[in-house]
Design a binder for these strands. Sequence first.
DNA 1: AAGTGTGACTTGTACGGTCAGGTGGTGGAA
DNA 2: TTCCACCACCTGACCGTACAAGTCACACTT
Lengths: 248, 248
Amino acid sequence: MVESALHLTIATELRGRIRAGELPVGGPMPSESELCREFSASRGPVRQALAALRAEGLIGGGQGRRAVVLDTVAAQPFATLLSFSRWAEMIGRTPGQVTQEIGVGRPGPAVAAALNLDAGDDVVALVRLRLLDGEPAMVERTSFVTSVGRALLDVDLDTVSIYAHLAEAGADLHTARHTLDAVAADPRDAALLGVAEGSPLLRERRLAMTSTGEPLEWSDDRYRPDVASVTITNTRSAHAAMVRHLDD
Amino acid sequence: MVESALHLTIATELRGRIRAGELPVGGPMPSESELCREFSASRGPVRQALAALRAEGLIGGGQGRRAVVLDTVAAQPFATLLSFSRWAEMIGRTPGQVTQEIGVGRPGPAVAAALNLDAGDDVVALVRLRLLDGEPAMVERTSFVTSVGRALLDVDLDTVSIYAHLAEAGADLHTARHTLDAVAADPRDAALLGVAEGSPLLRERRLAMTSTGEPLEWSDDRYRPDVASVTITNTRSAHAAMVRHLDD
DNA sequence: AAGTGTGACTTGTACGGTCAGGTGGTGGAA
DNA sequence: TTCCACCACCTGACCGTACAAGTCACACTT
């Protein structure tokens, strides 16, 4: 087993203590020097770990004061925000999917612009109904650039997680941009999700890129708003952290 | 006047170059050592600045490779996400507001739970229609804890920015949690925003807290989805950054 | 021509120290 | 008893150094 970096070890350990209630919400964190002694680290890694927790919205506080525990649940890691399946598993639900369409073809102008494609380029387009515990939760309309999408044409998309498959195929998913708004359910959305036509849906449009900014995937996902919503935490110093969660 | 911190200076300067196109999208950032020389800094502040840009979704990249410019527009700073007025000013629009109701009273159970109030506590409740360039854009239903809200009862809310006023009054706004979903416009929303009853609205429920986690404000904001949406960037390493923006 | 090293360059991680500036408790003065 | 000055402690910021690990291009070998 490769030991991971010290600052990651510290962050993981502190996250665990916060989640377990060992460090209670509203209470102070240990001081930096205490953490240095405990983990035999210099202040660098300790501060790096605290900065991470701060960015996740777990702790707050200011100069001269000890950091304060704000919450017990952190924002979700990268993969969870990208993959419906991993998200479902993380929140303890069973993901499912029913593929409606898949094929190679010319993209519409909006998709071509989002993926920064040239005039002649094709995409692999996919429409799926996503389920949570067997109930309709989301309609997904995804377009992949062909270099990535080709790997999908041979697999059974109703059983395999796309992102797990793409990761194995070596796709370098690194950054994603999510745009959230509300739309009315069109007739097809309504039929698939089991809601009335025109009823409000939470739409997440997502562009996934490599570490160098090359677009890989563009998706238009429409959630039943009674099933899922999105929470973001932001702090004066740090920036925002996002979490998609279930409505109970 | 104290000059601001070096890492903030570097980050601001680099943001400016990216926005100006001096560092083109898709191109490499200067190496850390180049930045050290240019700003007469050690690697610490330089890396802190780059980490900030990374968290804002402006740059990406990995070990051994130079960072890559991903986008020209950064996520918004804290105040912009909290204050409709500052957001409007940042995107070059004129904010406006028409107060519908304001008063002190007993909160509903949902509000009391969100603000973590005891049974007998009152809140200052406020309903406003918010405008962009004179056009209806959002309906805001906000509840303040009385210690904070009292300061609002004496001012003209149609002309003063609440957050500017609260900041002057010494309120320590530090962290905010935003939950996004979609709702159908109720009759009152529809009348105020000038949309059909039942049409989809983007709802942002927001809890603002002090640095020690004490709730200060709970708000239910409903946007016309043709006017505003919310974008979030997240990266494998860094966490998410959020930006609220205008739909053109 | 294609594959393979090798080495320069770059970022990631971590150490140590230093100073500035904010916080909060304590003890003495009024 | 109340108030205030002071001080110990803490976090924020920064420097310089060192080594590990990843990337890329170029020269060399096959």
